[in-house]
């Protein structure tokens, strides 16, 4: 089974990389671009076959290592197939 953990910066946290990308997009002529925020996606292969257990494991991984609760939020999902 394949899982996906998406980690995003919390709304109140300044995303300096997003700001730089915003500027670069404008320089490339992409008009009408508002705020850009950068996140991370972790694709995780799991031996687990039970979807509920797999989601619980992904949540534990996000809390324990993949996300920093001071600055980030996370979502877990299972990939189809």
């Amino acid at each position: 089974m394949k899982g996906k953990v998406t980690v995003r910066l919390k709304a109140g946290v300044l995303d300096v990389e997003g700001k730089a990308i915003e500027g670069a997009l404008a320089k490339l002529g992409f008009n009408g671009v508002g705020a850009v925020r950068v996140g991370k996606v972790f694709e995780v292969e799991l031996a687990e076959t039970d979807p509920a257990a797999a989601k619980a494991a992904l949540t534990a991984m996000a809390k324990g290592l993949l996300a920093n609760p001071v600055m980030e939020t996370f979502e877990v999902a299972l990939e189809p197939g």
Partner: peptide
């Protein structure tokens, strides 16, 4: 120390990049 929870808060990318 912040990542280990021994100090509060976090250190992220410098504002000027």
């Amino acid at each position: 120390l912040t990542e280990a929870g021994l100090l509060p808060g976090a250190l992220h990318r410098n504002a000027g990049l």
